[in-house]
Design a protein around this nucleic acid. Structure first.
Lengths: 156, 156
DNA sequence: TAGTAGTTAACAACTCTTGTAGTTTACAGT
DNA sequence: ACTGTAAACTACAAGAGTTGTTAACTACTA
């Protein structure tokens, strides 16, 4: 359940921040981003509509929205931050090979914070649950490759 | 429960790989590394004993041990990989401010993979559970700072 | 409509990680 | 022990991702 673009815009207005065309564009792109794009990818999409928009502006805007708690900027270990328009708790399946990401509901018996955290005085603000492995397509591809290697000259 | 340094060495030998002084040194440093150091930090420690050891060697050795499944190289979103000598499943508390990391036991009845993963054909190989927030020391510090800001001239 | 504070674009710098090339070295076989 | 060789090492450089700086620009207020 991503936050609608209008609500993202409203968040800037509510904080006395300016509603620039760049922010409007990015907010609508974020609403439509159901594929956890990298920041760079979102920048490329933005440039289709506004060729002069800078990568720095994209980073800045995303960071602001993440601080407002309206999106999530998730470090999934793929080398770059992923933009997640859904700020509500959920897990991620991350493919090692192609980097694709699939949302998953959180295990209901996973506590919002570990029992010992409070004792330690640690204040939990956020939770990431990441399952790494191979998506169906990449698992298939890598299985095919292995059988090909074992089968010397099989396709010659 | 970190893997003993002797077992790490044995793993190299078992694969017909050479037992170099660099690998011996790194294996013993890893065994003692209970603080989830960055690769860079481990490199600095290694240089205390062997000043010419290169960062590249450290990366290479750690990557190998991680592929053997004897350590974990965990991307915790702190900007750099963390070395975890314990390859068994556990969660991590990560402090946003100082980057310190505390191990936590995983809920024992937590499924190793989400229910939908199998249906999707996604093969889960690894799981990261990360709780982000502030450690006791940093929470205290930031609380002190806020009260100071609200209390203008309080210490002048 | 003009002033101004907040934003932006352009550019550079920085951090973390990986690639390349040539030298060195651990180990197997004599 | 000695030597040959494949593996591993160091040094260097490059690549990717992210952040800092600064001058120009512009959305909003009065």
């Amino acid at each position: 359940m991503p936050v609608p673009a209008t609500d993202l815009i409203t968040a800037f207005r509510a904080r006395g921040m300016k509603i620039t065309p760049q922010r409007q564009l990015l907010c609508s792109l974020i609403e439509e981003a159901h594929d956890h794009p990298t920041v760079e990818t979102l920048h490329l999409r933005a440039m289709q509509k506004m060729p002069t928009i800078s990568l720095k502006t994209v980073y800045t805007t995303l960071t602001e929205l993440a601080e407002f708690g309206l999106i999530r900027l998730v470090p999934l270990g793929t080398g770059s931050l992923r933009v997640d328009p859904d700020p509500t708790p959920h897990a991620h399946l991350v493919c090692r090979d192609c980097g694709s990401i699939i949302d998953q509901p959180l295990e209901p018996n996973l506590a919002p914070a570990p029992a010992q955290a409070e004792d330690l005085g640690f204040i939990v603000e956020e939770r990431d649950v990441i399952y790494r492995g191979r998506c169906a397509a990449c698992a298939k591809k890598s299985a095919a490759q292995i059988s090909e290697e074992g089968d010397v000259g099989g396709h010659a």
